[in-house]
Write a protein that binds this DNA or RNA. Structure first.
Lengths: 349, 349
DNA sequence: TTGAAAGCGTTACCAG
DNA sequence: CTGGTAACGCTTTCAA
């Protein structure tokens, strides 16, 4: 496998490699005639510049690392598409890594990607440990954190008002007359979980509904944990007429547990989720949830990242807050979904 | 951002860069004492080798490209996890690309990845055009094709017997007494579609059920197309008592269309899918489908790829056939799902 | 408008 | 066991 190099092109076109480089990068002057000759040589030889070599000299790899906890949660593929598309438009490639919500994995990936000299990171942190992010900042490597914030670090981030939207979700249930509202949280140490939990409690407080700690459980954002926590709640004998889960995967798990227990959704227990993954509108009953613009958030993160990469290193950390909204469907009874307005993330402008 | 290089380490440890390289790669002899000193320097300086430079000299990037049509179809994230995990175990990084089933995108990605000098590709082709694959083969770049085969090219591949399993699926419906069985195919030009279609027809033929071309429609493997094709079928006035869709996303779309039409699944129309994405077991009614070991297929593809990368360039193209199976659930009435044995892909050994 | 040559950070070969 | 020194393929001054 003899690779064609810039040298071969130069020889073929009977010019110096500097000239080939110039026409390739459209840098510096080169006569129309020579340029033609070089292009012909490039095509004749089917030459592809070696980006590795290029990166080594320029110091930029035109690659960004995307670090996510779990690509099998449909929320993240939507984010990933947004990141990928926005990156591609700008000539960047994305390396996607799954941490399985494991901080060790996360560290390992970041190390590997740093060694590959990615130009920046888009991140959904897997745990409360800020050290990885801090390491990046210290090394002056651009990072944008998405969906979760990092306590103790000043980073660019793309977020939604988790507390507010959890508040809305809970209020919706309260508005439907529910008082025994269980809450299944995500991992306690994530800001996302804390904020959504805070929203839940604030809603209860504002509505004068007494808070019952026995109705709160902690999951890990995955389907089985929602299922298991819901079973526990049902088995506990506590009265529960509604459940709010910190994300859709857990909400769906909870719904399933309720049905397996012989109860009906929403007649016996209402369910509300968070994220609005595609699945939420497809299951029966369809799931009331908070719709996050996942695709958009990914794309936005890349834009912010590229600005940093483009030089705007200094300055304060910036935070973009994205809009979310409550999508009412069947899983909590009451009103019906506004048709045709739901936001799937992928494919949205 | 002054990056620490091997030179700095050498200076700090008072040895030559050759020595540092040796301890780093555990190549050649180096005294215990020197080694210690070098390691201390590496840690003191927090040195990270530049993989770009390393790749440039060694000629291998320890990166593989994963090219998939659509990461928002849950089948592919499962494959991706398999690929990623297997790659990581072997010290490889994965660059994941979505082609949106667009051959142009596919070409663009392959070009970009080749320029980045990935060591090999794992591929699910988006179309019938073999030229991209042929280009790779010609350039002696290892490729493993997954889930679909490429006509006119001799490539390593990881497949299942699509025809056989489509046959089983159809036979299952026939066995339940159905005769008016519609079929919603994937894109006509993909081998996967052709084979599944062939299985459908063979089952009809073997059972002596007459084939009705008006009952066959073509979708694109995505939810909306399954929904639309099913609506058309219903609107056509043709008698339909069962539908077999070439993948789960379309089957779920079809199911929804049936329900929106005011009919019940499975009482009025039975539905069978193909893939066994997680979603298939979560919806109501749960979906009878052919279970493919997505995660395993991804991992297997990487193993095959690494063997090629490891030198086994010559020889015939190899094909690994993975086992699939029919998972009977609620969407077609009749028997119930065997509990606890379903294969989700991710998480499986 | 073009060419020569000095790196970029590593590895690998060859002396010592 | 260790050090020097060509590559690797490309960009980027600096001269011409």
């Amino acid at each position: 496998m003899k690779t064609v190099t810039i040298k071969d092109v130069a020889r073929h076109a009977k010019v110096s490699i500097s000239t080939v480089s110039r026409v390739l990068n459209e840098s510096g002057y080169v006569s129309e005639q020579t340029s033609q000759r070089v292009w012909r040589a490039i095509e004749a030889l089917n030459y592809k510049p070696n980006q590795l070599a290029r990166s080594l000299t320029t110091g930029r790899s035109r690659t960004i690392g995307l670090v996510l906890p779990d690509i099998t949660n449909p929320f993240f593929p939507a984010v990933a598409r947004g990141v990928e598309d926005a990156a591609n438009v700008n000539g960047y490639t994305v390396i996607l890594c799954n941490t399985d919500a494991d901080p060790e994995q996360e560290k390992a990936y970041v190390t590997a990607l740093r060694e590959k000299r990615v130009d920046g990171f888009v991140f959904t942190v897997s745990g409360p440990d800020a050290s990885t992010i801090l390491g990046l900042i210290e090394a002056d490597i651009p990072v944008v954190v998405i969906d979760r914030c990092v306590e103790g670090a000043s980073v660019d981030s793309v977020l939604i008002y988790n507390e507010q939207w959890a508040y809305e979700a809970t209020m919706h249930l309260i508005g439907l007359g529910h008082r025994a509202i269980a809450y299944i949280n995500g991992p306690d140490d994530l800001t996302t979980s804390k904020e959504r939990y805070a929203g839940y409690r604030k809603a209860l407080a504002d509505a004068g509904v007494s808070f019952n700690p026995a109705l709160v459980r902690t999951g890990d954002f995955r389907y089985p944990s929602g299922h298991a926590r819901m079973r526990e709640l049902l088995a506990s004998g506590q009265e529960v007429t509604a459940v709010f889960a910190a994300n859709d995967m857990m909400a769906i798990g909870a719904m399933r547990a309720i049905q397996e227990w012989g109860l009906r959704v929403p007649e016996d227990i209402a369910v509300v989720g968070f994220d609005d993954i595609l699945l939420a509108s497809l299951i029966k009953p369809s799931l009331t949830t908070i719709s996050q613009p996942a695709y958009h958030m990914g794309a936005l993160a890349v834009e912010m990242l590229l600005e940093r990469i483009g030089g705007a290193q200094g300055g304060e950390a910036r935070t973009k807050i994205c809009h979310a909204r409550l999508v009412v469907r069947e899983s909590c009874g009451g009103r019906r979904e506004e048709f045709g307005t739901r936001n799937r993330g992928v494919g949205q402008p």
